[in-house]
Design a protein around this nucleic acid. Structure first.
Length: 287
DNA sequence: TCCCAGGCGGTAG
DNA sequence: CTACCGCATGGG
């Protein structure tokens, strides 16, 4: 157990609130004003943002360099300022949503955790999704004590495999219980090998493998591609909110198919459409 | 009481 | 290929 503390001077493309509130993650919670705490991997991290400084403080369960882990997790190598410029240039309608979501960074979240989390997200709302994932972690994850509080890691495939369908139902997963159970089994038995999936380059190939998992359809597959370490900014998840905002801004029709939305997203936003999607989703849902 | 939520799987046409 | 339906649960 290694504790670390550091700070960075605020950069224009890092906003703590927008990163954690834009709907890409489920295990970060507001602690106080401008302070968030979360669990990812075997790390506990607290982040506080003041005027010109961002303070990091946390522990890693193994003896790894938390600062280095965060560099990757927060996608710090990517130049978001430049990406924003490109998006604005391609389409000016996006501008206000980019301004609203200023400082969003797309996290590199654990692939396994992202798969299960977004299977749970199906026909569900964000507060309830967070509650379910928290209960899964408390019941099947590993406890970590830090500063007089116990936190729980997201369960590994082996840990989660201990849960029966009935156990999952009792934790409130509803009809998603069977899907989580089956997908866990498929991953443990390596019908889908996450290690190999991570190394695969071909977008459609990765996507088709994800689609073979129980509970993973088009939308969930795109969320996994975008929000996990697979990190494909060309994945464009279409949920009810994105459908709504795309129709209002670009289409103006009674019945739009997801296919049409995908086509227009490609035309308007190109290879960065996944990032555009996140600004639009956040803006439409909150503002 | 009804509607909705970061949809999916199954079935029918 | 597209169109619809059932599915658990909690909040507004």
């Amino acid at each position: 157990m290694k504790e670390q503390k550091w700070e960075i001077t605020k950069i224009p493309t890092f906003d703590v609130k927008n990163i954690f509130e834009c709907g890409q993650c489920f295990r970060w919670n507001k602690e106080k004003e401008d302070s968030y705490i979360g669990v990812f991997g075997t790390n506990i991290l607290r982040i506080r943002q003041e005027e010109k400084k961002i303070y990091f403080e946390g522990v890693n369960q193994q003896d790894k360099d938390l600062k280095e882990i965060c560099r990757y997790y927060f996608d710090m190598e990517r130049d978001y300022e430049n990406l924003q410029k490109k998006l604005k240039k391609e389409d000016s309608i996006l501008e206000k949503s980019i301004q609203y979501g200023e400082g969003i960074r797309i996290l590199n979240q654990d692939l396994w955790e992202t798969i299960i989390s977004f299977i749970i997200s199906a026909n569900n709302n964000i507060p309830r999704i967070k509650g379910i994932i928290e209960r899964l972690s408390q019941n099947y994850g590993t406890p970590i004590r830090w500063k007089h509080t116990t936190y729980y890691t997201f369960p590994s495939p082996e840990e989660l495999a201990k849960a029966s369908i009935e156990d999952l139902r009792r934790l409130g997963l509803g009809f998603r219980d069977k899907r989580v159970y089956e997908t866990t089994k498929m991953i443990i038995e390596k019908q889908v090998d996450l290690q190999k999936l991570q190394e695969e380059k071909d977008f459609e190939k990765i996507r088709n493998i994800l689609l073979s998992l129980s509970g993973v359809g088009d939308k969930v597959a795109d969320c996994i591609l975008l929000f996990s370490t697979l990190k494909r900014l060309e994945a464009f998840p279409v949920d009810v909110w994105v459908k709504r905002v795309m129709n209002e801004l670009y289409i103006h029709k009674e019945n739009i198919t997801n296919k049409e939305i995908q086509e227009i997203a490609y035309q308007k936003f190109g290879e960065l459409r996944g990032l555009a999607q996140q600004y639009l989703f956040y803006w439409r849902r909150e503002a």
